[in-house]
Design a binder for these strands. Sequence first.
RNA 1: UGCCCGAUGGUGUAAUUGGCAACACGUCUGAUUUUGAUUCAGAAAAGUCCAGGUUCGAGCCCUGGUCGGGCAACCA
Length: 551
Amino acid sequence: MADEKALNFLEEIIERDLREGRYGSILTRFPPEPNGYLHLGHAKSICLNFGLAIRYGGKTNLRFDDTNPSTEETEYVDSIKEDVRWLGFMWANEFYASDYFDQLYGFAVKLILKGLAYVDDSSSEEIAAQKGTPTAPGTDSPCRSRPIEENLKLFDAMKHGAYQDGEKVLRARIDMAHPNMHMRDPILYRIKHAHHHRTGDRWCIYPMYDFAHGQSDSIEGITHSICTLEFIPHRELYDWLIEKLDIYPSRQYEFARLNVTYTVMSKRKLLQLVNEKHVSGWDDPRMPTLSGLRRRGYTPEAIRDFCDRVGVAKRDNLIDIGLLEFCVREHLNKVAQRRMVVFDPLKIVITNYPAGQQEDLQSENNPEDPSGSTRTMPFARELYIERDDFTEVPPKKFFRLAPGQMVRLKSAYIIRCESVLKDADGTVTEVHCSYIPESKSGSDTSGIPVKGTLHWVSAAQAVPVDVRLYDRLFNVENLGEAEGDFKNYLNPDSLNIKTVYAEPSLKQAQTGEPYQFLRMGYFCLDSDSSPTRLVFNRTVTLRDTWAKERK
RNA sequence: UGCCCGAUGGUGUAAUUGGCAACACGUCUGAUUUUGAUUCAGAAAAGUCCAGGUUCGAGCCCUGGUCGGGCAACCA
């Protein structure tokens, strides 16, 4: 069944191009710089680039934009590849801008020969001054009229290491009074005596983004080069270079980058959080990085669904993080195994259940799963329930346990609260209940209707495990508008660690498997777990309309 | 004293390309429920930034404004 969703503006462009025979098939690319880990914003770009190619029978390249050796590392290359694969996409080719350094050098020589590029001796300050301002035209560099022969010789010397960093650059010769700042003789090459993660020390001059990206697109035959809005002013230069170089005419299109409430989405800021130890690393489960989300328990399906629902357009946006949460819940509800875990235990004694007796009850693994598979839970005289699930003076519409009130213990029996034991402070220490033997789950003949169903564990068999409860990383909705240092808005309570009591079957929990702790949320086993101590991350809570009502 | 983008319910995205604004999230009801989850049914919520114009008819076209964002790294 073809989806009837309206086309976004990129799909319209592509369909038009295909219809008019401009391309036989399309080729897109995902072009990260390997200087950090991928985040949700990249996920949007990945889903777009790969999604478009899949939809229209084309292909997508993974290309590392590695033209700045001082910030890039192989560690990042590896994590990026892992994340793209995890998200569920496979690239047609793995390329690197650094693969094209020789060709790019040739392109530069070609421009010099055409009188369209020159070597400039100006310092970076001088060049900045020459640029003028958006409202005032720039001025020509003294080197602007350097003869072609001399430019050729100088550029060759640059390549061969005759100069120090910053001594010379190669600039395009366009127009120092151009209304578009990017067209005022932009720098094409700079000198950097730095070790490159792939080309080693072979080069000491490196192309700038503007002289690498479009050229790489062109070399690969990319039909639609999709990037974010801030590159709009670069498009004129992108087209100018393609025209002057007379190479394959890739076309650039721009969409609005993703912003999400209560988080930041820039590599620079995320790097700061990592470096300054506000989080445990790039894969801290609170991070909007793909590695963080993965560790948190988010599924690729959920993230892809999110990227789909977020849409693509050209206006600035701020997406409610609630949409992301909706997407995971929707997926996890279908696939997560149910387990019972009591967070804040209150002891229940079933006074009419014989001491020392135990029975194995069956509980469904997932009510959404038609196979109806079950697991075994031990039931006994002494149990734990959630302290929140009991109160001595119930408010209106409280369906849980209270003196004289009945509730069902999920997959077990209906119990009635008979009496309460307290300590000297008046804190409830134990609740004594009776159970209705004929109300056994699956063969209930009691006919008693109860409004509430509680999760529980057998006190003797409960397994203590750690849970890490995460909350939003920041406590302001729109970090883009927040004044001052974004780190001032970090949520001090974004991580809460508790020891809780799990049903015994959870000892067999597997990493990578999602679980729903009944009524408590979705969880997954963390890599910090050891055989003696299991650690679970809370992916997201369940929707909780009762919590809202209580307020 | 510039150039370039953009403006539709709280949020995001649509509107058969000129025919009286739809979908999703969120919110609020109600039903079902051995998870106050899920599921289901329903409701409230914009008259499309403003002012003119063209037209039988404008969210879509034109003109002029307003507001928001971007552009002056040897970053990408």
